[in-house]
Nucleic acid binder design. Structure first.
Lengths: 253, 253
DNA sequence: CCCGTTCGTGCCCGATTGTGCCCGAACCTG
DNA sequence: CAGGTTCGGGCACAATCGGGCACGAACGGG
């Protein structure tokens, strides 16, 4: 039996039973658990199942995002501190744009209940989190929704950002550096980020220090577009000074 | 049972019952209270429940009037049957628009995992539910988000629906009757519904029989705009016949 | 026909995760 | 304010994970 056949069958079993587990599958297909793990990883990357400890669940069954709750726990502390520090950059009143991303989602969750703001976002999880916040006027930016990031992209999103002007944008990036600027793996998302940057008077980049020096496929701006970078204390003082030399203020939370 | 499964189930219990408590959950799932606390913490971090001493309550239900919640749960069976019946109206492939509303949300949750569709919606909960469905290309309609319904309205939404053409629209209404047509309490939502109706080749109305004869502030169309009404068996045969006389097919699930 | 490359798989081992237990602190209730 | 309940952080243990390495089969160019 070939690997793709096996994966197809695993997917069928997962959908039929609502769940599969590594050891039973290994027994069933007469292969080792490692191979099953590789299969599940492949299916997970394809977005067809959701990997869990010990097995997998077919995608679409869960209506919450485990990664938002726990998978980010590796850098959760840094992200929390960054989000906390970002609160200080919120205007007392006015309009802010929230980009997609777990750190920005933390910020959204940390918004004080008495905050009174207009928030614009193209991120589905962030919108869901803010929808019942009493003081927030929420504007959702539409578009095609990418499965992986749950963020809206493409024409509708670009046009919406082209029509507005916000006081502050909180933006995330998968990689940032003085040389290569701000990068992210997906072109469509990069385009939306670029449009959001253009729509904001002030740009605040939220990125933990692990992103520094990283470089991904799509570039959506340079550090010169960023007024303030909020990162964690693991960014070296030298790197911070280099960035500040370019005119970007740096906060190490 | 995997942790995410348990958390999903806890979330369901919380939404159904309006509340959950740590000890009962520990008993129910045969784990210790610590584990339940961790689950609740994860759900709390994801913004899906709100943690309280001794348990948790589902997020977003805080401002719900109890009688509204109760009415919702009493009609749950009907809504489920209606949603099930609506599945038969899905095209094998093509584009469908999903309006906001609890019955339509149930339809969204009941979409088979192997479905392959393009879905357009302006409802935040429905979008969240479909965002990681592997076979669905999801397009989100943006706009101002109303707190109460978590649906996007106003200019962006109207323009988006003005630009598309879908095979089927599944629409909800707070009231429907041959005389007064389709009504809902909010003008802005009515405008969006009207735009959605105009964007679809076929209009399917999902409404339990309690909505029949009800009349609300904003009217967004007549029964003549509806090709098919799916309701429950409590709608009298006479009423059904009257509606069918107007050219609208009626299914009593 | 040969041989280097690639891919799938199995094995090993340190790292991670989920869960339970414990205890001081915080919290409700009366 | 007192007493019991619940919380949350720390620790431990077992299961699982994932990266690295090796082996063998299939493939393809010379």
């Amino acid at each position: 039996m070939y690997a793709p056949e096996r994966q197809q069958e695993i997917l069928r079993l997962a959908r039929d039973g609502g769940r599969v587990d590594v050891l039973s599958l290994a027994e069933e297909f007469q292969v080792t658990a490692e191979t099953i793990r590789r299969d599940l990883k492949a299916l997970d990357r394809a977005g067809l199942v959701r990997r869990v400890h010990g097995g997998a669940i077919p995608a679409g069954r869960l209506d919450f995002e485990p990664d938002l709750a726990e998978r980010e726990s590796t850098a959760a502390d840094e992200k929390d501190r960054i989000a906390k520090a970002a609160l200080a950059e919120l205007p007392a009143e006015g309009t802010v744009i929230l980009d997609a991303g777990t750190t920005v989602a933390r910020l959204a969750g940390a918004l004080p209940l008495e905050a009174s703001l207009t928030v614009v976002t193209h991120s589905l999880p962030i919108a869901a989190r803010l929808a019942d916040h009493p003081g927030i006027q929420l504007h959702l930016v539409g578009g095609r929704v990418r499965h992986r990031t749950r963020a809206a992209v493409d024409a509708w999103a670009l046009r919406a950002y082209g029509e507005i002007r916000a006081d502050v944008l909180f933006v995330a990036a998968n990689g940032f550096s003085a040389e290569h600027g701000l990068t992210t793996p997906d072109l469509a998302e990069a385009a939306v980020k670029r449009a959001a940057v253009a729509a904001a008077r002030r740009v605040v980049l939220l990125a933990d220090s692990a992103k520094h020096g990283e470089e991904h496929f799509a570039r959506f701006g340079g550090l010169g577009d960023v007024d303030l970078l909020i990162t964690d204390s693991a960014l070296s003082a030298a790197d911070a000074a280099a960035i500040e030399g370019g005119g970007t203020e740096v906060v190490r939370a």
